[in-house]
């Protein structure tokens, strides 16, 4: 049948588009219609149903911080997803408590998404609340002062610009916080 595409220009064009669109539509348009958790923000107040918490929209300051994160290309080295892999829940964990895995309903307000594909530095999906202001300031100024052996570039212009620095930290502290996963809420400010 497809031999017609050898000689018939219109047929070749039509057939290659049709065949492409089957998979194209079934994998892009259809999934969000089937899986509603992609668009419904996380919210749970009943401890019996599991971890509690609520995903809140970003504040203006947090969005400013997020824009800096995008501008500096942080996403090329830091993923934001605790995968369904045991080691991921341990590494995203903190002070002996394992982190819950990331779920689609925690990312509904992310625009653009920052899941990332490469983990040159550690995953940041649960970094919110782990380090305080002073730690971040020192770390942005020169990561190797706090973490010898780190290959992260220094970002002195963020540490030195109070507005940018505050916004940046405000954003970082939101990461992974929709779920109240710490036992005593022992988050740093």
């Amino acid at each position: 049948m497809l031999q017609k595409a050898d000689t018939n220009f219109g047929f070749a064009v039509g057939a290659s588009l049709l065949i492409f669109f089957i998979g194209g539509i079934l994998t892009t348009v259809v999934p969000p219609l089937i899986d509603k958790t992609w668009a419904k923000p996380f919210s749970n107040s009943d401890p019996a149903k599991g971890i509690t918490g609520e995903l809140k929209p970003y504040t203006e300051q947090e969005l400013k911080g997020r824009a800096i994160y995008i501008r500096e290309g942080c996403t090329y080295c830091h993923t934001q997803q605790t995968r369904t892999i045991l080691a991921d829940t341990k590494r995203s964990g903190w002070r002996g408590v394992d982190s819950p895995v990331s779920t689609p309903d925690e990312f509904v307000y992310d625009y653009p998404h920052l899941f990332g594909t490469k983990r040159t530095g550690p995953d940041l999906s649960r970094v919110g609340g782990k380090y305080d202001m002073q730690w971040h300031r020192t770390h942005f100024r020169n990561p190797r002062d706090l973490v010898p052996g780190s290959v992260m570039p220094p970002f002195p212009w963020i540490a030195a610009n109070e507005e940018e620095f505050q916004a940046m930290v405000a954003y970082l502290q939101t990461l992974g916080r929709a779920k109240n996963w710490r036992p005593d809420g022992d988050f740093e400010k």
Partner: peptide, 24 residues
């Protein structure tokens, strides 16, 4: 023709184990 059909379905393999529907 198999390239035309098969390739476009595979995007979600960039998020295996990640926060995206298991069936996808």
């Amino acid at each position: 023709w198999s390239l035309a059909f098969v390739y476009v379905w595979t995007g979600a393999h960039h998020m295996l184990h990640g926060p995206i529907s298991q069936w996808l």
